[in-house]
C-alpha cells in the first residue's frame, strides 16, 4: 500500500475544473451553465480535500464546508434567476438576456 500521490488528486481536480469551464463557455442553455458551475465548484472543493488529507490538516475540510455553503447559495440564486429568465423569455437562452450590453 503506497497510497495515492498528491499530484494525481490535483490532476483529477484540474480535469474536472476544465471540463466544467469548457461547458460554461460553450453552452447557451442556462441550466447547463449552472451545472457546469457546480462542477467547477466541486472541483475546487476536491482540491481542498486533497490538500487537507495530504498534509493531514483539518483546515482543508473546513474550507470544503465553506465551499459547499457557497455552492448551495450560488445554486439557489442561479435557479431563481433561471426561473425569472424562463418566465420572461419563455426559453433558457442566455444570449436572449443581452439587452443591457453589460
Amino acid at each position: 500500500m503506497n497510497g495515492v500521490p498528491v499530484e494525481h488528486g490535483l490532476i483529477l481536480a484540474a480535469l474536472l475544473f476544465t471540463l466544467g469551464l469548457a461547458g460554461l463557455m460553450f453552452r447557451r442553455n442556462m441550466l447547463f451553465v449552472l451545472m457546469s458551475l457546480e462542477v467547477m465548484l466541486n472541483a475546487a472543493a476536491l482540491a481542498f480535500i486533497v490538500g487537507a488529507t495530504a498534509w493531514g490538516q483539518p483546515e482543508g475540510q473546513a474550507m470544503f464546508l465553506l465551499v459547499i455553503t457557497l455552492a448551495a447559495a450560488e445554486a439557489v440564486v442561479g435557479l431563481a434567476l433561471m426561473i425569472q429568465l424562463h418566465h420572461r423569455f419563455r426559453r433558457l437562452d442566455l444570449d436572449a438576456a443581452s439587452r443591457m450590453q453589460g
Binding site: 463557455m25 438576456a97 443581452s98
Partner: peptide, 14 residues
C-alpha cells in the same frame, strides 16, 4: 466588445 453575451465574457476571462 460589450455584446451582452455572457459566454463571450467567460471566454475572454478564461
Amino acid at each position: 466588445s460589450q455584446t451582452g453575451q455572457l459566454r463571450h465574457y467567460a471566454v475572454i476571462m478564461v
